[in-house]
Every structure is written in C-alpha cells, then in structure tokens.
Design a protein around this nucleic acid. Structure first.
Length: 423
RNA sequence: GGAAGGGUGGCCGAGUGGACGAAGGCGCGGCGCUGGAAACGCCGUGUACGGGUUUCCCCGUACCGAGGGUUCGAAUCCCUCCCCUUCCGCCA
C-alpha cells in the first residue's frame, strides 16, 4: 500500500511515478484524493459531535448523582447520537472504498528502475557462464526426462490434469538434493530456515499483495477460508505482521523450501510442454526484513545469494533489471535471474529478487522502533533462491549428453549420490 | 469434534455500567542522594488518526483479542468470530 500521507502531500510525484508503470494509474490517485478529502471532513464532524456527546454524558452521571433531573440532557444526547450515526454510515462507506482502491494500486517504482513497457525493455545487468557447445542437437528437458523415466506427464495429467507432472526416481531424488544444497548454502549465509504453513488466511495474502487483486491466480479451500500459498514469500514475509520489532533484531534473513501453487489463469498455451510452467512447483525462497536505510544494499546481496546457487551448479545465467512496465505489483525494484535453456536457445526466468520497500510492511503493519523511539515500517525483500522445477529443467538440458544420459553437476554429486543419471 | 478456563499498556496484573488510557508492580528514562555504585526517594514513560500551530507543543477522537449490539454512557452487559491453555475423543 502506498502511503496515503505521501499521496496527499505530493500527488503529482505519485502520479508521475505510477504512470511509468501504466498511464491509467494516475486517474486512481485523483479518486483517492477525493475520497480522502470527504473522509477527513466527515471525521472532523463526527469527532466534534462525539466530544460533545461525551461531555453531556458525563453531565448526566453528575446530575443523577446529585439527584437532579437529567431527561433534558438525555434527549439532547439522543439527538447528537442520531446525527453521528448518519455521518458514520457515510464515513464507513468512504473508508471502505478508499481501502479497496488503495489495496489495488501497485507500488511506486524506485527512481533507478528503467522506464519501459514490457520485458523487451528490461535491462541486462550481467552474464555469467557460457552456454554449452554440444556438437549435437540438444533435446528439450521433457524429452530427456521422459526417456530417463524421471518425468511422467501422462500420469501427472491422469491424477490432476494438465500442468501437473509426476517426478520419479532420480528426478525425485534430484529435487531432494537440490533442496538440501540450496538450504545448506543459504543457512551458511545467515538465513534462518523456516518450515511455514502452506495454507494461509486471506489477510496474509493481502499483506504481501496477492489479494485482493489476484484472487483468480490462487487455489482456495472454500470451506476453511484458506488459500494455498503461491510462494513461500507469503508466509515468510507475514511472519512478523502486526509486530513492532526492536531495531537490533533487524535485519532478519529467512529461507524456506515449499511447494508453490498457482492457477496460471490467463497463461493458456504458454510453456505448455515440460515443467517450466506448472500448477505446483517447489522453490527455495529467500526473504529479508530490514531497516529502510539498507534495503537497496540488501537487494544487491540477496540477488548475489540467489546467483550463487547457479554458479555452484555451473548453470549459465544472466541478470536483468525489470523495467517499470514489467515490475510486479508489490515491487519497487526487481532483478530477474534467467538461466540458459539450450532447447529454447534463450535465457528463462529462474529467480526474481525484489525490494518492496514499505509497501508490504504497511499492509501487514510490521514496524520497528528506531533509536529515537519512533515506530517506522520495515522494508521487505524476497527472492527465489531458486525455483527447483526450473533448475531441474536447466540441469537436464545443460548437462545432457548425446546418448540421452545427464551428467550431474559436481557440487550436487554428494547430495544426489551419483555422477550421472542414465537409464 | 466435545467440555472448561482465559485473552487488559514493553512485561506481570487489578478492575463487573459513570471522572478509566485504565490501580499496583516490574522494566525503561530523567533528577536527587553518593567519592562512585547498589538500595532508596521524586518525576516521567502507549499507539493510531483528525485538527490547530508547524511545533515532536496543544486540542479532540478512537483503541482493554476482532467485529457487531444494548445504553444517555461499555474494559465491564449481550451476540458472532479469532486465538491461547487444560481435559476428553480422533488421528500421523
């Protein structure tokens, strides 16, 4: 949520920065200002009426104690009360509208974010590694996986429909090995390993920004009013919601391995083959809860921590800085890490590292008490460290051999217990 | 799923319809005492929003798990929900 105070104080600035995402957004700010003006005027009226009511109520108590008649004053208070009620109703309406509106406005992009329309305008920041030179026609991961008996698309669909895959044998072990490798790496860097709930309440998703705007992307358990998490970012970031942290407790680094559930509404026909886009995939997530002064420095380090996984696995990648038009809802700045996929002859997103500044903290009401004793919102960051399904695809493709077997990246051999995956 | 008890400030804890933002204690901060410290004494110590003045100062409103209700007036009474503890049942 953007700071209403900022909108009120510098509406022009807010409009300009939001327009870099989408020209349409500036209009919403005018609506916010109108509602806010009405809200404040109602509030002033109501509060002075209440002050009067409180004064008179006390008077009644006094009169009664003295054994005097108080019916006249009571009548007056009743009148004030009905006066309050009318305005109160309108106030609640206005506040509801204002909140819904505010919850649907995305975060302001940071000044440093390149201005652009879509992913075409993203900025490549750096590359690491060389795409492999095979000397034969590389196969896509779904063919490699099927031939090795580790990816079973037919049976996945039989159980649950399209975009669900059964992973078996060395594939299942690969997943487990990657999970351990990643968690071990991040733990060593000071991230606290967490095993969070995978089902969360609606307000938790509102805290990180998935609700109310992206309801259709989520799986919901209707009877219990719970949603399946689309990423571990959701429970991890919300861990300290409603709390006032001590300044010394910051920064907080968290990591978790969880499955992620996404309905992928609106991505029909995209990445329909293979395991690039699934309704269920695993991911190791990184979350940081930090002091506002250091959040951009923390973003650089978070991104490097995610990159480290790809370096360790020897997978070629590049880092791109998302342009304003491609930025996610809650993010002020995002680096995507894209891994090389030989079958597609291009880099594909495998991690997304964002600084949300105080956008989520405001929604979650997570604050800290600074050295002057003032309560301030924390900054929150998150990044994949990294998506395991896509890592498996990348390993199968980048480490494939002409005979259909797959070499295991050296760093993973002890975790997996083999040097090569073959039939 | 059933039964009982409970949720009050940073913490503990009192408060069952009227001067209660809330006793008391702890903690924290300041001052005093002291060569210094402990102990002791005195004073202070929540948050959010709105308004004034643009100051961290004043005024007002709200907040005693959350939301509704009763009442001239609710921490206190009623309803719904959430959470915690204990016991029983069930279960991995």
């Amino acid at each position: 949520m953007i700071d209403l105070g900022l909108i009120r104080k510098s509406p022009q600035l807010v409009k300009e920065r939001l327009s870099k995402r989408d020209k349409e957004l500036a209009r919403l700010i005018d609506q916010v200002l109108d509602l806010d003006r009405e809200r404040r005027s109602l509030l002033t009226d109501i509060e002075s009426l209440r002050a009067e009511r409180n004064r008179k109520s006390k008077e009644i108590g006094l009169l009664r104690k003295q054994g005097k008649d108080s019916t006249a004053v009571e009548e007056e208070v009743r009148r004030i009360k009905s006066d309050i009620e009318g305005r109160q109703q309108r106030l609640e309406e206005v506040q509801r509208e204002l909140k819904t509106l505010l919850l649907r406005i995305p975060n302001l992009p940071h000044e440093s974010v390149p201005v652009g329309e879509d992913e075409e305008d993203n900025l490549e920041v750096r590359r690491w590694g060389e795409p492999p030179d095979f000397g034969f026609e590389p196969k896509p991961h779904w063919e490699i996986g099927q031939r090795l008996g580790i990816l079973d698309f037919e049976r996945g669909a039989r159980l649950s429909g399209s975009r669900f895959t059964v992973v078996k044998g060395w594939g299942a072990k690969l997943e487990r090995a990657l999970m351990n490798l990643m968690l071990d790496m991040h733990s060593k860097k000071g991230y606290v390993e967490v095993l969070p709930p995978h089902l969360v309440r609606p307000e938790i998703l509102e805290g990180t920004g998935q609700l109310p705007k992206f309801e259709e992307d989520l799986y919901k358990c209707e009877r219990d009013e719970l949603y399946l998490i689309p990423t571990a970012e959701v429970p991890l970031t919300n861990l300290f919601r409603g709390e006032i942290l001590k300044e010394e407790e910051l920064p907080i680094y968290l990591t978790a391995y969880t499955p992620c559930y996404r309905r992928e509404a609106g991505s029909h026909g995209k990445d329909i083959r293979g395991i690039i886009r699934q309704h269920q995939f695993s991911k190791v997530e990184l979350v940081k809860i930090v002091h506002p002064d250091s959040s951009y420095e923390e973003l650089e380090r978070l991104t490097l921590d995610a990159e480290e996984v790809l370096k360790t696995l020897g997978l070629p990648y590049r880092v791109v800085e998302l342009c304003t038009g491609d930025l996610g809802f809650s993010a002020a700045k995002t680096y995507d890490i894209e891994v090389w996929l030989p079958s597609q002859n291009r880099y594909r997103e495998i991690s997304s590292c964002s600084n949300c500044e105080d956008f989520q903290a405001r929604r979650m009401n997570t604050r800290f008490r600074d050295s002057k004793g003032k309560n301030r919102f924390v900054h929150t960051l998150n990044g994949s460290g990294i998506a395991i399904g896509r890592t498996i695809a990348a390993i199968l493709e980048n480490y494939q051999r002409e005979d259909g077997s797959v070499e295991v990246p050296p760093a993973l051999r002890d975790y997996l217990g083999t040097d090569v995956i073959r039939l």
